[in-house]
Computed example of a mutant assay.
Amino acid sequence: MDKKIKNIGRLKGKVLLFGGVYSNLQALEALAEVAKNENINPENCICTGDIIGYCAQPEETIQFFKKWNARSIAGNVEIQLSENAEDCGCDFIKGSRCDGFSQLWYPYAKSKLTNDSLNFISSLPEYIQFEFANKKCTLVHGSYFNTSEFIFKSTPWEKKISNFEGTKSDVIIAGHCGLPFHDEYNDLLWLNPGVIGMPANDGNPSVWYVILEEKNNSLTFKHKSLTYNHSLANSLMLDNGLPNEYAKTILTGIWDNTEILPEQETKLQGQPIQF
């Protein structure tokens, strides 16, 4: 897939940001209802990628996403599917537990998608840029330089800063790492809304998203948690032979392992997230 940047201009009104749907139709349906209740137009609902992932309904999730008419960039999973690759491209360590699980869920997802869904996936831009509250915002998946790069709150600013310089942005909105956070430095903001397809390793089955607003000509944001029918998502995963460990995470909110996490984030496992 060629690098594609889509500029959607200046946005007005509330903006809903989310990531990692991971084929979790129940969470996506619940989030669309939030958008409706908040009077947020679909074109102001923007995903950081990985619409497809660990859960049981990849085709249904894509079709719902299309019908909702929300926006998304391509995550590493969409890029890999578009290229008919044999793995998810998540940058898991070879032979790790996450790598082993991906050899179950990725072929399952690949086998369920229709040509129509694959065409939709292939049409997604790699980045989205927009202006909001006099700030230039750029949506990336992992980072601007590497779709599969894991960037966390504890990641040094020396690594983050090049993303702002490369995109000439004031705000980077990113996904991929699975944890919601924000990090500010010299009027720059790195904002990760979290993912809705899996809990955030905090011991709670709820998932996370962000709402942007413009107040007094300034950009404001609020991290929000989302409850949904996680019991159904869990049972569908088990019924379709997907990894039991990921299905359990849907219920417990605890990750099976912390292989991808830095030490600082690893220590927070099971602790409630507060903003």
Rank of each mutant, 00 (worst) to 15 (best):
Y127Q: 15
E149D: 15
S117K: 01
A133Y: 02
R71I: 00
Q57K: 11
G270Q: 04
E131H: 14
P42L: 02
N76A: 02
A247E: 06
S218I: 09
T48A: 09
E263V: 08
Y108M: 08
I211H: 04
S225Y: 05
V195T: 14
F65M: 06
Q80N: 09
C137T: 11
N192Y: 04
L113M: 02
P272N: 00
E165V: 12
F221T: 02
S162W: 06
F164N: 04
G13A: 07
P180F: 02
N41D: 06
F221E: 03
V195E: 07
I93R: 15
P262D: 09
K36Y: 10
S122L: 08
E165Y: 07
T220F: 09
I173W: 06
S72M: 07
E149G: 11
L226S: 11
P272I: 05
G20D: 09
I121Q: 05
L11Q: 12
E149K: 02
L268G: 09
K248M: 12
N217Q: 15
W190M: 14
K67P: 00
E259Q: 05
K168Q: 13
L31K: 01
D202S: 15
S82K: 04
D87L: 08
E126I: 01
G9E: 01
T167M: 11
S123A: 01
E131F: 11
I196V: 10
A35R: 02
N39S: 09
G49A: 02
I173P: 11
N39T: 07
T61Q: 02
D183N: 15
S143N: 09
G194P: 11
T252H: 06
F275A: 06
N146Q: 13
G142E: 01
F18C: 05
K67S: 07
T147K: 04
I161F: 06
N201T: 03
Q80D: 00
L139I: 15
W157P: 04
I79W: 05
D187G: 12
K267Y: 03
S235E: 15
G13N: 03
P262A: 09
A200Y: 06
K67A: 03
G19F: 03
F120L: 00
K224G: 13
P243W: 01
G89E: 01
Y127E: 13
F181T: 13
A32S: 10
K3F: 09
R10T: 15
Y209G: 13
P262R: 09
N7T: 06
M198A: 14
S169G: 06
S231T: 12
E126W: 00
C55L: 03
V207M: 12
K215V: 15
S231Y: 13
I161R: 07
N201A: 11
L11F: 07
K248H: 13
Q57R: 07
G197W: 15
F130K: 08
L179F: 13
G178P: 10
T138N: 08
